[in-house]
Design a protein around this nucleic acid. Structure first.
Length: 484
RNA sequence: GGCCCCGUGGUCAAGAGGCCUAAGACACCGCCCUUUCACGGCGGCUACUCGGGUUCGAAUCCCGACGGGGUCACCA
């Protein structure tokens, strides 16, 4: 059996769209699963859109996600170059070959003429389709225009009758009436190939066996097939992928800041969580497993389990995956990753990051939520004494006053400020006073944190804060309770 | 609008004519655990878009409607 070769062919826009990333993922998984090759090709024929450093974004994202290509611009291969702009001289001869065989023709219509005809068609409520006007030019007329240097494009000569069909591995048998096929431009006026043409030529020249790409190409595929057939080339297997949506009616978009890989990385999502989740939007392993490493994905991946229906990207589920991966990760790595987020609000505050990280790791869902969770350590937030009321803990402002008055001397008496001593001393004092743990610890935690939810309990927070600050906050709490 | 695709709970999804009074996960709600939250445990809520067929029997097959998406560039 022939070696499977898939490719990911992004345009260097400077950003990696999540839909594109998922396409890359599936291409990678399929190639690896089949023991084949995964090729990276950069489609930069549109020079106007050139963005500095954009190819590096593609390289970094793919590598960062663990998808290493077997052939590509930076590592070479037997079918290079892998950057389309470096291949530009290659396409014209192929187009001319099609002109000779009658599968394409020169077109001298100007953009203005075309726009006019398009507008006229639309005015009549019709769909504009190139009318093959230039197909009927005589050889002499064509040669004369060519000799005179009249600008031209080369168009595909698509059939107008019958129908074209092909089999898609996901969508099954696809059939389209030929009269809906437009004579698409193959070579632009500037001599450069259109994306549509370059794609076919490159895929063939690079020996691509399976073309896996977004659904948007589903209906233009017949035109590509016509090209393959005109050249007498083998048509690749097609695997079109359903769209990744933001909600039922919208795609993930740049404007909403929810479309790019970097948007999520910046917020504090882990690449392994992103990849794991993305793999499951539009595909499933057929059983209940949800957590997969890249190797495990390769092992279980099967194109037949790809879904046809579009999938909505659910940030909550992604967050759940992220939380899972954060909990699983090595503590030292967590500490390293969380430190910059601590720094945003705790820099210079003399807080023990290591201990705080221990308390925070299993409570971290997404890193960008960390600052708000630990900010109270830097500065006591203003809070309402109502926080001292908690039914289950059997506390209210009165109980809280008693509790804090009980705790104040106890804490002042703690010489060796460490968690064990703190814990034992505090618990003993509560027992001696005959109070409930919750009735004392709840008010204490509120007084020193100023908020309802905190990472860790009263003892841990008191230790993190240090004796001086803890006592200062207890006094502050007492003062608030007096006024209440 | 033409052509094409899709349609199981709020979301991802299993389901390929009887195993479906439809799995699992996320989210949500309740209870338990707990010095808060989180974690964990237990339980709950919510779905086959609709209408016709075919069949002894349909979420599964067919037709239609409706809904959503894609595509109709010298952009990729």
């Amino acid at each position: 059996m022939k070696e499977v070769r898939t490719r990911f062919a992004p345009s260097p826009t400077g950003f990696m769209h999540l839909g594109g990333l998922r396409t890359a993922l599936y291409n990678y998984l399929f190639a690896k699963k089949m023991g084949g090759k995964f090729i990276l090709r950069i489609e930069d024929t549109d020079q106007e859109r050139f963005v500095e450093g954009a190819t590096e974004v593609i390289y970094d994202t793919l590598r960062g996600c663990g998808m290493n290509w077997d052939e590509g611009p930076d590592i070479g291969g037997d079918y290079g170059p892998y950057i389309q702009s470096e291949r530009k001289s290659l396409y014209l001869p192929y187009a001319q070959q099609l002109v000779k065989s009658g599968h394409a023709y020169y077109c001298f219509c100007t953009r203005e003429e075309l726009d006019g005809r398009r507008a006229a068609a639309e005015a009549k409520g019709e769909v504009f389709k190139y009318d093959k006007h230039c197909l009927h030019l005589s050889p002499e007329e064509i040669q004369a225009k060519l000799d005179a240097g009249v600008p031209y494009v080369i168009r595909q000569n698509a059939p107008t009758e019958g129908e074209s069909s092909y089999d898609d591995l996901v969508f099954g048998h696809m059939s389209f009436p030929n009269d809906t096929l437009d004579d698409m431009v193959l070579i632009k006026q500037d001599g450069m190939p259109t994306y549509n043409f370059a794609n076919v030529i490159d895929d063939h020249l690079m020996g691509i066996t399976h073309v896996m790409r977004g659904l948007e190409y589903l209906s233009s595929t017949p035109k590509y097939n016509l090209l393959y057939e005109a050249f007498g080339w083998e048509v690749p297997q097609y695997i079109h992928l359903p769209t990744v949506m933001r909600d039922a009616t919208h795609k993930l978009s740049k404007r909403d800041g929810d479309a790019y890989y970097s948007d999520y990385v910046d917020k504090g999502y882990l690449t392994e969580a992103l990849i794991n989740y993305l793999a499951l939007v539009g595909w499933n392993p057929g059983d209940d497993r949800e957590f997969f490493t890249m190797d495990e994905l390769i092992d279980v991946f099967d194109v037949h389990r790809l879904n046809k229906a579009p999938g909505i990207f659910d940030v909550d589920k992604l967050t759940w995956f992220n939380h899972h991966y954060i909990c699983q990760m090595d503590f030292e790595r967590y500490l390293e990753l969380v430190t910059p987020w601590f720094d945003k609000v705790l820099a210079g505050k003399n807080i023990d990051y290591r201990r705080l990280a221990q308390l925070m790791q299993e409570r971290t869902e997404v890193f960008n939520r960390v600052p708000d969770m630990v900010r109270f350590l830097a500065e006591l937030p203003d809070y309402d004494v109502e926080l001292y009321t908690h039914k289950k803990m059997k506390t209210n402002p009165d109980v809280a006053r008693t509790a804090l008055n009980l705790m104040k001397p106890v804490l002042e008496g703690v010489e060796d400020w460490n968690e064990t001593t703190l814990h034992d001393t505090v618990m003993a004092a509560i027992a001696d006073a005959g109070m409930k743990n919750g009735a004392v610890l709840w008010p204490l935690r509120i007084a020193i944190s100023g908020q309802q939810n905190t990472p860790g309990g009263a003892i841990e927070i008191a230790w993190l804060l240090g004796k001086e600050e803890t006592l200062r906050r207890v006094d502050d709490g007492l003062k608030r309770l007096e006024n209440a």
